[in-house]
Design a protein around this nucleic acid. Structure first.
Lengths: 246, 246
DNA sequence: CTGGTCATTTGATATTCGTCAAGCCCCAGG
DNA sequence: CCTGGGGCTTGACGAATATCAAATGACCAG
């Protein structure tokens, strides 16, 4: 693998604490690949041969069933995805599709599995990563089951503002079509909901989000650390929708 | 801790492979406690001080928000729960409430965190457990987002039949009220849905489920290994609703 | 046996949400 | 410049689901 990409990856919590020699071993076995936009890199059900690390671009993770599909996450640099499938040596549960031109590091799953037996620090890092991912999906499930679509949209908008540092205005990181699917609704419904939220303190102008009355919006959302995070010691990666979904 | 409970716990994948001396250390630091029915053992948001292991009885894990709540899982013997919170040393994401008289082993989270640094086999077991739990929640999220309530009910009924060995008739392991919440619907709706499913090959008589036309039901459900499982090398514990939710 | 509590069922109704169809807007490609 | 496609929006409609209310049934305690 090209050594210039190493430092970015080395910074990830997953790889930060392992022995340099071990990290080098993993990187030697890995390689970088570039994908054009809209390409299915992984189809759900495929055997999990590689841990994927997004270097540039963005990747959509989608679940599919009976001809339907839903966006489960959007992964942005620099973060990993489908760690769990690699570890279990089990089929991918989600399809991965590039949203734009994307560079990916592919780490052979077998090397990965061998490595956390060799390097105790790495094992601990994997444990922490999986636990964090797990908790994030549980949060997500809670949000889906406890909130209606309006509340989900509002909480999403407020949360993104917080992640951006509490700014009153920002730009949506993903297409509304994807956001709708991620939030478990149709694009039409999202569009209507966004408009209706103008009465509750957020105005949407294209991809621009303007929080006009934070107090009012917060009252509607009732943000909850156990759903919206952040987790203490959160592993803040740069994911566009929610977070890493290792 | 009373030594007679050790063997059951030792059988769990989580503890099976660790050194006996280390296992004994963990058990020494742990203790057993019995809870009456309907008691909140854990409130969501509490610090995660103990890994819980159900020895007898059953425990409901519920998510709560804005005065609403939903059942996320029901845990049955012998299995663990809230592993991830213990590992992250983070607040519990779910409230745990006994459904009946329940005996629980409490393993101090700090000992647990220390242990996977001492015992590499245990670390590997934790990794596998977390990865499995993670995948199971992702499955769940897919089911919630890709299927409507009728399909979720039908797939649940068929899956339970499969888990029982493909039997044509069995008894629901949980109250319908809980099942409804777990499936993301109201009890009224579940009741109506169950009745309507008689036209598709399942008859419900009280808590009794009779599959009258498996072919028809299967056609409706379109079971999918990537949602309904089983995962290859699945860690089949004895959970009543879905699975362990460590 | 009897009263009370709670789960379940049923019906009527309201709300949410998805579907269908059309039009708009933006942008890439000719 | 024009043209076409795709994302977004809007309106009308219908289906799915929740809510409210009441009746029934199961089970437990007295």
């Amino acid at each position: 693998m090209r050594p210039d990409t190493d430092p970015q990856i080395r910074h990830l919590h997953l790889f930060r604490d392992m022995a340099q020699a071990h990290f080098a071993d993993l990187m030697t076995a890995s390689y970088v690949q570039a994908f054009p936009p809209g390409l299915e890199m992984i189809r759900q059900g495929d055997p999990a041969d590689f841990l994927h690390i997004v270097l540039e671009g963005s990747v959509e993770l989608v679940g599919q069933w009976a001809g339907r599909e839903c966006t489960m996450a959007v992964v942005r640099p620099v973060s990993t995805f489908i760690l769990a499938a690699c570890i279990r040596d089990a089929p991918y549960l989600m399809t991965a599709r590039t949203l734009e031109r994307t560079r990916i590091v592919l780490v052979p799953a077998s090397d990965l599995r061998a490595m956390f037996r060799r390097d105790a620090e790495f094992a601990v890092a994997v444990i922490n990563e999986l636990a964090a991912c797990y908790r994030s999906v549980v949060r997500n499930a809670k949000s889906m089951k406890l909130r209606n679509s309006r509340e989900r949209v509002a909480s999403y908008l407020l949360r993104q503002s917080m992640l951006a540092g509490g700014v009153p205005t920002y730009t949506l990181a993903v297409e509304k079509r994807l956001l709708a699917s991620y939030l478990g609704m149709t694009p039409e419904n999202l569009s209507r909901t966004l408009k209706s939220l103008e009465a509750d303190g957020v105005k949407i102008d294209g991809a621009r989000v303007i929080i006009t009355d934070r107090t009012r919006l917060t009252a509607l959302v009732q943000p909850d650390k156990l759903i919206d995070g952040p987790d203490p010691v959160a592993d803040s990666t740069g994911s566009g929708l929610p977070l890493t979904y290792g």
